[in-house]
Amino acid sequence: MKKAAVAWVSVGDGPATALWCVPLEGALFVVSGPGEQSAPGLAEATGARVTLRGDHGGRIVTWPARVTRVTPGTPAWETSAPLVAAKRLNASGPTADLVARWAADGCALTRLVPDGTPAAGAELPDGSLAEVPRDAPVVRTTRKPFRLHRVRRR
């Protein structure tokens, strides 16, 4: 968990969503809301299911998590939010400005703490759980490559 940068988080019976996260103090911290990533239902949830994957995309562990929202102005916010903001990639401006924007815009800083035993190897499915891609009207036929001159075959 301490090397995680992305976690798949599902709330209730909803689908798992890939979320940027920061491992800190034995928990994963996730920021969502206006101007940040979308995490449907996570800010209001009390529990979630977290799946972490390895460097090559294979599932390492799935565990139940207790979800708590860190509110601005609390001691937990004052210690955690700057550390999470420092790890935020492509953040515009200094860390203090980012933390102030999160508080002003109503962004949710949630803390995911392991709550129970991780799924054992026998409980994990053998398949990849990959879904068939959905049909889309944007599919185009591939044209033949352009040739500037005639190619002779000998």
Rank of each mutant, 00 (worst) to 15 (best):
W63M: 12
A130I: 10
P133R: 12
G57S: 08
G121L: 12
A91C: 05
S10C: 07
A120H: 12
V84Y: 10
A122H: 15
E123V: 03
Q37G: 03
A86S: 13
R69M: 09
L109N: 06
V99F: 07
G54K: 00
A91F: 01
V11C: 03
T74K: 09
G116T: 11
T142F: 09
G93M: 08
R152W: 11
T142V: 14
A91Y: 00
T79F: 06
G47Y: 00
V139W: 07
S128H: 11
T46A: 07
A100I: 04
A103P: 12
N90I: 00
G14C: 00
P114Y: 06
G54L: 00
L98H: 09
R150C: 03
E78C: 15
L124Q: 15
A7H: 08
A103G: 11
D126L: 08
A81W: 11
V139A: 10
T74G: 12
V67M: 06
P137T: 05
G116C: 10
G33M: 03
K144P: 14
V113W: 07
A108S: 15
A5Y: 00
A103C: 10
A43V: 01
M1Y: 05
L129W: 04
P82F: 04
R49V: 06
P94N: 10
A65K: 05
R134N: 06
